[in-house]
């Protein structure tokens, strides 16, 4: 541990404390996540083990890098790339205004990170990964998907799942109805929610207070789905008929600052029927990104 000098505590993760630290030799700033290994328990916690094994393989510029794993008898230390800001801090710094080019750039990077995850082997693990969240971080205009188990309010679930896992606000209707068929389409719904939130400089799209309220908020925008728009919806485990909402808000009202192409992309992500939701690759090919500038002036 002499290699790194601890600078400050960043937060508490799901299974340990996260510190900002400096590599004494290279002066590089990193994030250290400490995992305690208690005598009486089961060795390396499975969530930590999965995070290590999977992040080791996910090497992509939009996914936070795991540099190293250090260990002693009593603890493991995961050495991560350090990110300056999480989504919440970033939004706080905006004062309600965000440059549309930055929205576009962040959304594209988010989709690129997700597309990479969706194509990687680790998707064959997604069924077994519970209660880990993907969190968005930023570094000089670069967006990173990370898995720090922090900042729960801004989780994008790229992994699976017990139905309770995905933060309520980002949960798609199929999961809210208890669907057990967890697929990559869940991430795409969440990406849509984050897209709208970005475009509105940090105002959450569907800030529901419970499952019922969450569904109502969704259906007020999208209309209540029926067997016609979503075959077999009534077979979902927790399905119950809800009052029929005709869409009472338009996307222009919901995301006033997003242009028409952006609204079109958003509408293709926020589709109640998971089978009809756009995939990450198709979303990246959408005409909204035709004039993409990945490094807009911040």
């Amino acid at each position: 541990m002499q290699k790194y000098e601890k600078l400050e505590k960043i937060g508490e993760g799901t299974y340990g404390t996260v510190f900002k630290a400096k590599n004494r030799e290279t002066l590089e700033i990193v994030a250290l996540k400490r995992v305690r290994l208690d005598d009486d328990d089961e060795g390396v916690p499975s969530s930590a083990l999965r995070e290590i094994c999977l992040l080791k393989e996910l090497k992509h510029k939009n996914i936070v890098r795991l540099y190293d794993v250090l260990h002693s008898d009593k603890k493991l230390t995961l050495v991560f790339e350090h990110c300056d800001q999480d989504l919440k801090k970033y939004f706080d710094s905006l004062n309600g205004e965000i440059d549309p080019d930055i929205v576009k750039s962040f959304m594209y990077q988010l989709l690129r990170g997700l597309a990479f995850c969706h194509k990687s082997k680790y998707c064959s693990f997604r069924e077994y990964l519970s209660d880990t969240f993907c969190v968005l971080f930023f570094n000089n205009g670069e967006l990173k998907l990370a898995d720090f188990g922090l900042a729960r309010a801004f989780g994008i679930p790229v992994k699976c799942y017990s139905a309770e896992v995905v933060t309520l606000w980002y949960r798609p209707p199929d999961v809210l109805f208890g669907a057990k068929l967890y697929t990559t389409s869940i991430d795409m719904w969440s990406a849509g929610c984050i897209f709208a939130e970005l475009a509105n400089a940090g105002r959450p799209l569907f800030p529901g207070s419970d499952v019922e309220d969450q569904l109502k908020r969704i259906f007020r925008l999208l209309g209540t789905p029926s067997e016609e728009t979503w075959p077999s919806i009534s077979h979902l485990p927790d399905y119950r008929p809800l009052s029929i909402y005709q869409p009472s808000m338009s996307f222009t009202q919901v995301v006033p600052k997003l242009n028409s192409k952006g609204r079109d992309l958003l509408q293709r992500l926020l589709v109640c029927n998971p089978a009809q939701r756009l995939g990450a690759d198709d979303a990246m090919a959408h005409s909204y990104f035709a004039d993409l500038n990945l490094k807009p002036q911040q």
Binding site: H118, E127, Y161, K180, L181, Y182, T183
Partner: peptide
Amino acid sequence: CSAYSDPMLLDDPR
């Protein structure tokens, strides 16, 4: 919770 096939993954040759 066990493995479910995800057409998005199975269809994609990559």
